[in-house]
Structure formats: C-alpha cells, structure tokens
Amino acid sequence: MSQFKYSEQQLEKAFQARVDAEQKIEPKDWMPEAYRKNLIRQMSQHAHSEVIGMQPEGNWISRAPTLRRKMVLLAKVQDEGGHALYLYSATETLGVTRDELIEALHDGRAKYASIFNYPSLSWADIGAIGWLVDGAAIVNQITLQRTSYGPYARAMVRICKEESFHQRQGYESLMVLANGSPEQKAMAQDALNRWWWPALMMFGPHDGESAHSAQSMKWKIKRKSNDELRQAFIDQTMPQIEFLGLTVPDPEMKWNEQRGSYDHGEIDWDEFQRVINGDGPCNRDRIEHHKKAHAEGAWVRDALRAYESKKRQRLAA
C-alpha cells in the first residue's frame, strides 16, 4: 500500500536512513532493486562457495590418515553443506528460487570463492584449508554478522558459531605434521606455500579496484573493506605460522612497528583474474562435478515429489 503514498525517492531515503541507523532490513521491507540484486549476487556467491568448497576436502575423506581425522573431516564437510543451506534459504527470501541460483552457478553467471579452484594435493592441504581458508572466511564472516540484511546477518551468526571448530581442527592437524618427521614438516610447508596466496586473494581486489565495494559499504552489506579484512587476517595468522615453525612464502613480509601491522608483498592479480574468470587449475572440474552430482540426485527429488503426491491422493480418497 505504501507505494501509493510515497515516491520512489522518499522510499529510498527512508531505506537509507534505516540502514544508517544500524537497523536491519527484513524480507518484507521495501528495498531498492539494486540492493536486492547486489544481495542476491553476494549471498548466492557465498552459498555456492560453501558447496563447491566441499570438493577439495571431500577429496581426502576416504584417505584420512586415522579414523579420528576421518570423522572430523566428515563432520566439517557436513557443516559446509549446512552453511550452504542456511545461505541459499536466506537468499530465497529475496524472491529468487533455488533452481535459478543453481542454474546461474552452472552456466557461469554466478561465481564462488576462487580458492576452491585449487587442488588439494596432499593430506597437509586439508590442515591448511581448515586453518587458512576457513580462517580467512571467519575474518570476513564475523563482520558480516552485522550486515544490513536481517536473514543474512542471522545466517552468519549461526555459521560463525560453527566455524571455529573448522579452523582449530585444521591447525591442530598441521601442528602434528609440523612437529613430526622432516618429511611431514616439509608437507606442511609445501601446503602453506600453495595455499597462502590464494587465501589472501579470498578478500578480493584492492579497495580502489573492487567493483561493488563502495555501494555495498554505503548499504552496509559489507562492513569492512577488502584490504582491511586482508590485513586483519595477515596480522592474526603470522604468529600462528611462526608457532608452527614454518615460513610464510612472502619475502617482503615484515612487521611494521609504526603501523602495528605487517607489510606484505603484492598479490599476483593476473593469477587472481585468471582463476576468477575460469582458468584456474580446477574450475572446469568443480562445475562438472557439481552438475554431475546435481543430475545424479534428480531421482531422489523426483521420488520425494512422487511420494508427496501419493500421500496427498491417499488422504483425499
């Protein structure tokens, strides 16, 4: 009814005032079309990342070195599937269907975190993923608990509660390797070497070059800039690397007394662009695998629907 009373500009002004006052936007509220679109893009990208992220880790479930590690990894990968569900459902409150979201993933219109286009080559990679990839995700997700869209913020609160175990189990398993035989320590170092830079890329381009950043900050969808989040991650992770007795693969990494922060070398942005645009080591595999799993699950969805309609018929009879 409000659209008869207020002009678009008035609605937009009231919307921004609400956001500025740190009030959440809820599904039935009026919102600018661009805000809705921007949220669908970011939230579905986040959901897809949870789902695709199950692949590099799932790769090692059957080869985990002990039963305990296997149970832990299974539980973690199961959590990630759950995270995707929270996020897809929250995205659907914006008036888009699950099928549309999956379709956009399959035809390449929707992205997911580019780090999952790297292969998990050794068992040490599983520790590195939990520690660094989940660690980087947590830094981002903690700030997103204060994002302006209510369902997204609440999904983040739930997810953050579950994430801490992911990072800790990863670090714990790397501690075992780092304190093990020279070969095991070398495995841990090799994993750090390969995952470090992609982990830094997870935060996205520099603030000046980020396509969606300024508007997202104004709408408080994003609460901290890419560079701020990346710096926070580096500062918290450096002591953890030292504690393991490993070396960060960045010769320019140096503590800056004045800033109270680490200075670091430049990220290879060409690599970032390549991987984002489909040319990483595993991009095609990841999507092919998802399409295959989705198609192979079709009979389950069909069976559920058939059972549903049978039950309905029986009730009606």
């Binding site: 149970m71 832990v72 539980a75 175990f165 800790r168 670090y171």
Partner: peptide, 9 residues
C-alpha cells in the same frame, strides 16, 4: 569433535 573446545591448542 564437532565442538571447538575439543581441539586443545
């Protein structure tokens, strides 16, 4: 092991 406190660091 689903709980963060299970991992002693």
């Amino acid at each position: 092991y689903r709980h963060a406190t299970h991992y002693q660091l």
